[in-house]
Design a protein around this nucleic acid. Sequence first.
DNA 1: CCCTGAGGTTAATTGCATTAACTTGAAGTT
DNA 2: AACTTCAAGTTAATGCAATTAACCTCAGGG
Lengths: 184, 184
Amino acid sequence: MPRAGLTPARVVEAAADVADEAGLERLTLAAVAKRCGVSLPGLYKHVDGLDAVKRGIAMLAVEEMTVRLAAAVAGVTGREALAELSGAYRAYAAAHPGRYAASVRAPAPGDAEHDAVSDRAIAVIAAAFKGYRLEGGDLVHAIRMWRIACHGFASLERDAAFGRPESLDETFARLIDALDASFV
Amino acid sequence: MPRAGLTPARVVEAAADVADEAGLERLTLAAVAKRCGVSLPGLYKHVDGLDAVKRGIAMLAVEEMTVRLAAAVAGVTGREALAELSGAYRAYAAAHPGRYAASVRAPAPGDAEHDAVSDRAIAVIAAAFKGYRLEGGDLVHAIRMWRIACHGFASLERDAAFGRPESLDETFARLIDALDASFV
DNA sequence: CCCTGAGGTTAATTGCATTAACTTGAAGTT
DNA sequence: AACTTCAAGTTAATGCAATTAACCTCAGGG
């Protein structure tokens, strides 16, 4: 029995790949084990079960998104920052549907580690909104509205078939415009 | 063995209730069977399996929502119609999370029955937008933007914990305002 | 009154998650 | 170099859910 050299992080990455390919709801530890070259119960030496793996994917996804969002808004402000931020969000969700789906759920109450990665993401997003000079509640509402719009878009782009021929990019652009206009 | 008097519709309704209570992802035919007072395989005399039941819930939910949306926009137009429509959407999703989750997924390609209930819902929504006098692509984009916003809100209201003390109602109202402003 | 089929039943199979009990080899100790 | 130990695996066992098959039975139409 040669050692497979697994670590919790490796298992979670393999699981995230499975989730991206098969969909989060069809993520199965059996498939993860196969991809890791290990028997199914062998995974339990590294992770605590399916729910723990999903939490791991969520944290991984939020961290990956944070990096991309930060890169996207570097050097821009205001409306341009909003557009770049939104584009990066949409692109990540489209490229990694399983990871993205896992990332949506809020951290469990009292999960400090998960909270921490969430907070880092929020900090990046809040920074991207600086150009609008929003304060207090206005900033909170603005960030919520942005997340709602981006999540709604990403989610429906994936699940709902927009049958009409009109361009989805155009819809996305108009949505961002509407937000931008409401933030000034 | 007294007959339980089941019908496909009854089974789907029971399943929808289970989904609302336990969450769509935890919907189980075993629970549905128990609620129907029947053995699990007994369900198969009325429905074709779990996927078929989920499709049934989706259609039921879209039909129920259509009725509520239509009632909400009766007698109003423009911004007021938008607000009523959105409020009814949000209320339904909050009251029936399992049904709502099932309703989001687009009909399978070629599923004429499912398409039909979808189309009726879209007709009601489109009618609610009449006051904005949008035409062609503008109307399509507007309806998409509205759905994206409402779905994003409903979905995050359910899954993501908005930790901040700011009112969610206020966020919702601002979102609707932003849309309304962009539609005029 | 019969007899047939819809609406049930139990039994069997399969797939996955999880736990338990066992094995082994690699790393560190003496 | 041999010894010990424990982390990283293994196989075996259990339980639940979905699905299929094979069987039973009552209720209603001829």
